[in-house]
Design a protein around this nucleic acid. Structure first.
Lengths: 183, 183
DNA sequence: GCCGATATATATCCGTTCGACATATATCGG
DNA sequence: CCGATATATGTCGAACGGATATATATCGGC
């Protein structure tokens, strides 16, 4: 599933600029399971426009740089249906944290504790983000099933991970869960 | 955390060939949170050897291709400690499955059910793999903390995901969980 | 008041990495 | 006997990530 498909999929929900897409891939509904850099988003949008799967509308702004707003076309919606109707590939998961934990014997106890606490902070901030996304989700005529399903999945998995690490911190002899504010 | 570090980290546990490293990244202890292709593993091993962080021993075999067995050096263990003693970066997670679920409205109900069942099969096979790894883990003088911690983390997260999807399948009106043999 | 940091916005560059392919041999099942 | 699978190393092109460049406006701190 390449960046072109990801951008087209996002534009199927609402029109946006390249900058906004990147931001939403970092903070929005898609942030838990999608990653893409400017270096791949901007070329992808150009290609989509060249194939007439999206339209571009240049808007001049005062005090801010001009922007190019991309919107999906009917042809775009049609090919999107084809591009995503494939047997989903295995999830891909990479974790520096677990790699370090695997090689604990090469690290000091202090570093291990720090790494676990860092990971906990990351997981908790993602959980916060999901709650925030749920808040945005209720009012608009939002496609109900999709986001709900996806946010629930993320919430379930992250909550389980947090519980596991909190337990492990106790086993490591760390006083108490330093509350949510320990970012 | 680049492929060079990953290979060095693996070789810190036992000596191996490039082929074996790739296999273990797919099936072994590291498989749940590490990915690397031949196209990056073989060049990485050559670089590690050039820096004298690993040694190479060429072994001729009958009926099989010759192999190059890589083993970490003392210098290698020293730099490994430095390379992994960094604040771990955020986990990276990409999921075609969740992307498709987000865009359910562009898919048929049959496809959604198929996608969920495929995902369930993937998760269950990973869980099986973890159990299998635990089996291998007990007897050798294996570094106890590391693998245990990591396998437990994976087990926790995967189990939570499986439960969530089983529930969603019922909500989708799919008769019954088609047992573990539904790969 | 000015200086640095942050936000908005697009774009390109280089290095890393992936996925597919090439090569070679041996075994196993239909 | 033929194709698939396993062992083993390696390369190549395309995709991709991370950093940087460019331009402007605002906001907070000293």
């Amino acid at each position: 599933m390449n960046v072109k498909t990801l951008c087209l999929g996002f534009l199927a929900m609402r029109e946006a600029t390249g900058y906004e897409i990147k931001k939403e891939f970092e903070e929005g509904f898609f942030s838990h399971f999608i990653e893409a850099s400017y270096g791949s988003i901007y070329p992808a949008l150009n290609q989509l426009a060249a194939q007439a799967l999206v339209t571009v509308r240049e808007e001049e702004q005062e005090g801010k740089p001009d922007k190019k707003v991309y919107a999906i076309t009917e042809a775009g919606r049609a090919v999107l249906g084809k591009w995503i109707a494939v047997v989903p590939a295995r999830d891909r998961y990479k974790s520096e944290f677990l790699f370090e934990m695997m090689l604990q014997q090469y690290l000091s106890r202090e570093h291990v504790v720090m790494a676990v606490e860092t990971q906990l902070a990351h997981l908790r901030s993602e959980l916060e983000n999901i709650k925030h996304c749920r808040g945005k989700c209720v009012d608009p005529g939002m496609l109900s099933g999709g986001p709900d399903f996806v946010l629930g999945y993320g919430e379930t998995v992250l909550t389980a991970a947090v519980s596991y690490l909190e337990l492990k911190l106790v086993e490591l002899g760390v006083p108490q869960a330093p509350s949510v504010a320990a970012e």
